[in-house]
């Protein structure tokens, strides 16, 4: 009879239990860590046809976001500039630089300059840049410290919870209207930010838009 259940089978139930738990924990941890826009979307940094650097234009030259993205206060879509906007300066600065050849080509021939879209929300989300920019949500809240980046990358997960965290509690994220496009602006203190933010919520009638139809239409 002793051969029917050899000694190693006595440890089997405990090993199966511990092993199974470890395996399940690891798989759960893996899914939790990876199956989220914090992993799938954030950090995407595509190669662009022209190596445009926000660090040079915004960080170094101090240009305003709206010099190029001139529709951001009026339109749901924050436009890329027409190549003619680049040529305002680059008809003289770096005017024969090979890196700018696609821009010149676009201006001269009209052949599209195929920038690679970096931030791409799902098509069932209706995000409106103008509404956010005009109610004190700064560029860098979603786009990160873009004035320091040589290549544009997705800085924030832009997931549904990323949006909702702010929609449910806007006060910590609103800044004075004049500082929305100042990507170097910082609140003097967290308490000051909260006090000002709550005032902006009242004055600008900022709603706690957390119903589905606010973004999904």
């Amino acid at each position: 009879m002793s051969d029917l259940f050899p000694l190693w089978t006595h440890r089997l139930p405990r090993q199966l239990l511990v092993g199974g738990l470890l395996l399940a924990t690891s798989v759960t941890a893996g899914v939790w860590y990876y199956f989220t826009p914090k992993y799938t979307r954030a950090g995407y940094q595509p190669l662009q046809p022209v190596p445009f650097s926000h660090a040079t234009h915004v960080g170094q030259l101090g240009m305003d976001c709206r010099y190029c993205h001139d529709g951001v206060e009026r339109s749901a879509f924050a436009n890329l500039p027409a190549s003619a906007t680049c040529m305002n300066c680059h008809n003289q600065v770096l005017k024969d630089d090979p890196r700018l050849a696609p821009v010149r080509d676009n201006v001269l021939t009209g052949r599209p300059l195929a920038w690679v879209r970096v931030h791409r929300l799902p098509d069932y989300v209706y995000f409106n840049h103008a509404v956010h920019a005009r109610r004190g949500v700064s560029c860098d809240r979603c786009h990160g410290p873009i004035q320091n980046t040589d290549e544009t990358a997705v800085a924030e997960p832009l997931s549904m919870s990323f949006c909702l965290d702010c929609h449910r509690n806007p006060a910590p994220n609103l800044r004075p209207a004049a500082e929305v496009f100042n990507v170097n602006w910082r609140p003097t203190s967290a308490a000051q930010q909260l006090a000002d933010g709550q005032r902006f919520v009242r004055e600008w009638d900022v709603k706690r838009l957390d119903n589905c139809a606010a973004c999904h239409r």
């Binding site: 950090g43 190669l47 879509f77």
Partner: peptide, 24 residues
């Protein structure tokens, strides 16, 4: 998370995420 990647974001079941419509 958030690591550098040249590959476009992974989108499983993207039939609603990418609809046949035109964006600006």
């Amino acid at each position: 998370r958030g690591g550098f990647s040249r590959r476009p974001p992974i989108e499983l079941f993207n039939d609603m995420t990418r609809q046949p419509k035109i964006h600006p």
